[in-house]
């Protein structure tokens, strides 16, 4: 691995790349360059390169970006290397390829502090910078805040952290630091939360809400994932806002796929019929019960691409998440 990389050389290589792509497309409709942001991906060197590549390729048509993938290796020696290539796709039924740039940088942990100076000239002017940190280890590195400071938004996935409760507390500190933060563990909840919110759009069901005394949340893992903590905090906060104070009960079950939420239920004291209940059934289907009516909705497990699609659509801060994060950090899980 070379010791340093020159941003100017990378920019020059990118300019050459576009000339080459343009020549390849000559006589046809040419290529179309698209870019709406700079997406920096911080990953372990051992992180599945093909998986990251496929995720970025799938993200590009929705969020065309200059992607900068930094692959970290645990090493004390300062070392950096880079290469440049393009991600192109041909939209269905059309004649013109659309291309985005991708830069891949390999770096040792020790060179993390040098990276901000490399990335600064590489980010696309006037467009937002997102930093997606896929590695809990890199997130813990001392120099990580320097990298995070150049992004408008940092995205992590606390469900991949060894101790979700500790991760949530640590994330809360990062929010206190001031940057926009997203957690894919929260993003996984959007469809669950939306279903719950939809139930209470009905005035009849909304009337039942102040009587809710108990919240039950089950998950398919031995310890409560961060998603379960966020959901509990979000529900409790919503209920508090209308004057209801509910106890939270967490439960673990052994179903598949592992790690997912399997049930959320709102119940009032002394009643057999839940005010609202969503139970994950087989496959992606979930049973939604409220006011004696049962419905089916699809809650498929979302991959990184689907989760990132949603997060990249929100460049600013997410007040609901920050509030749930604060609540989750204070939750006691017995």
């Amino acid at each position: 691995m070379a010791g340093t990389i020159a941003p100017d050389r990378i920019l020059h290589e990118m300019a050459d790349l576009w000339v080459t792509l343009g020549k390849e497309g000559e006589g046809e409709a040419g290529v179309l360059r698209a870019c709406t942001m700079t997406l920096v991906v911080a990953a372990e060197e051992s992180d599945d390169p093909q998986g990251i590549g496929e995720t970025l390729a799938a993200l590009m048509p929705v969020h065309p970006s200059r992607a900068i993938v930094i692959r970290f290796r645990a090493a004390d020696q300062r070392a950096l290397a880079a290469r440049v290539f393009a991600q192109c796709w041909m939209p269905f039924g059309q004649r013109q390829q659309i291309c985005c740039e991708q830069i891949e940088i390999t770096a040792s942990d020790a060179s993390l502090a040098d990276l901000a100076a490399v990335l600064l000239p590489l980010k696309v002017p006037d467009l937002p910078v997102f930093l997606w940190c896929r590695s809990p280890r890199v997130f813990q590195l001392q120099a990580f805040p320097q990298l995070a400071a150049m992004a408008q938004k940092v995205v992590v996935d606390s469900d991949t952290f060894p101790d979700p409760s500790a991760a949530v507390r640590q994330l809360k500190q990062l929010v206190v630091g001031g940057g926009a933060l997203a957690d894919l563990a929260w993003t996984r909840l959007t469809r669950w939360r939306e279903l719950i919110a939809q139930i209470f759009e009905n005035r009849v069901h909304l009337c039942d809400l102040p009587q809710v005394s108990d919240i039950s949340i089950s998950y398919r893992s031995p310890v409560a994932p961060a998603s379960a903590l966020y959901l509990a905090a979000w529900l409790r906060e919503g209920l508090t806002r209308i004057g209801a104070h509910a106890r939270v009960h967490f439960g673990s079950d052994s179903g598949e796929p592992a790690g997912r939420l399997s049930l959320v239920e709102l119940r009032r004291a002394g009643s057999q019929e839940p005010v609202a209940r969503i139970t994950l059934a087989e496959g992606p289907a979930a049973e939604v019960r409220s006011g004696g009516l049962t419905n089916t909705a699809l809650l498929p497990a979302l991959n990184d691409c689907a989760l990132m699609r949603e997060e990249l659509s929100i460049p600013g801060r997410d007040a609901a998440f920050e509030s749930a994060l604060a609540g989750a950090a204070g939750l006691e899980v017995s």
Partner: peptide
């Protein structure tokens, strides 16, 4: 009765 659904999240949810 609550006047507003406390679970709405206009940033992420589609229209009510």
């Amino acid at each position: 009765m609550p006047l507003e659904n406390p679970f709405q999240d206009p940033l992420r949810f589609q229209r009510r």
